[in-house]
């Protein structure tokens, strides 16, 4: 894995939001304190953390779509190159793509096919991608509100693959999906990675993420606190170092649903 090219390297990323309290008093809300993660070609990395812990901000920071009151520090590199607005202009939507989480990321009044093509794709690419994900041709002429949950999911995936993306950021890809659809999504990610892309998946569902991920990065309180391989995680408690990761493992249904009695146990 190590000899493969590094696609994305995030080092010491910190993000805070400037907020105004009563009057003109300013306050900075720190969402990410220190986040480091790296992603190679052919790899699926799952960033796991509780809902509302600011994981999505990581994807938004890479894509440069944080709101204007965000303050960002640290380093984000794509293929060794510092990610700038210039680089984003060239690569976003083609090499670097995002797979959004729900149907609300589609324009409700535009037909699906045209949206999948976006401004950079062609009709042939779209039709090929639809075929690959078992979407009928008619779906291209449907509006988002006419799609079922599973179809929406596949349509969202096709938006990412039509241009042969190298870096795929998937933000909470599974909530609201049935088990079958969730597993299919994981299968899709695995296939994309096996074909040479790098997939960074941001999720709170460790169990589902394990179906595809090579590496699990645990995110808590604005920091990445642990990183382990899928094998380590599956091996169980003994192979894991950090108490929080161990607690995560123990909380999985197949490992007995145990929730630590007190915080001290996993505080570390």
């Amino acid at each position: 894995m190590n000899q493969k090219k590094t696609l994305l390297e995030v080092r010491d990323l910190a993000v805070s939001f400037r907020m105004y309290e009563t009057g003109l008093r300013q306050r900075n809300l720190q969402v990410i304190k220190k986040l480091s993660v790296s992603l190679h070609e052919g790899e699926v990395v799952a960033v796991v953390g509780a809902s509302g812990s600011g994981k999505s901000v990581l994807a938004h920071a890479v894509l440069g779509i944080l709101p204007s009151n965000a303050i960002i520090s640290g380093e984000i590199r794509y293929q060794g190159e510092l990610v700038t607005d210039e680089l984003r202009r060239n690569k976003l939507g083609t090499e670097i793509v995002m797979i959004p989480q729900s149907v609300t990321y589609l324009d409700p009044l535009m037909k699906v096919g045209r949206q999948v093509r976006g401004t950079k794709g062609t009709k042939e690419q779209q039709e090929k991608a639809f075929e690959r994900y078992h979407l009928k041709k008619e779906v291209a002429k449907a509006y988002p509100f006419q799609l079922s949950g599973g179809m929406t999911r596949r349509v969202l995936v096709t938006t990412a693959v039509i241009s042969g993306a190298k870096l795929i950021l998937a933000d909470e890809p599974t909530p609201g999906l049935g088990e079958e659809d969730a597993l299919e999504t994981m299968k899709n990610f695995r296939e994309l990675a096996d074909a040479g892309a790098g997939v960074l998946m941001i999720t709170h569902d460790v169990d589902v993420a394990l179906q595809a991920a090579d590496t699990i990065v645990v995110f808590r309180d604005g920091m990445t606190i642990d990183q382990c391989t899928k094998e380590q995680f599956l091996a169980g408690k003994e192979a894991l170092h950090h108490p929080y990761t161990r607690a995560l493992w123990a909380a999985l249904p197949q490992n007995g649903f145990t929730v630590p009695a007190s915080e001290e146990e996993w505080r570390g």
């Binding site: 894509l63 202009r89 976003l92 995002m98 959004p100 609300t104 990321y105 589609l106 401004t119 950079k120």
Partner: peptide, 12 residues
């Protein structure tokens, strides 16, 4: 909206 964010993420 979310779809505006997505468009931005796709470089529009």
């Amino acid at each position: 909206s979310d779809y505006a964010l997505f468009a931005k993420a796709r470089g529009e």
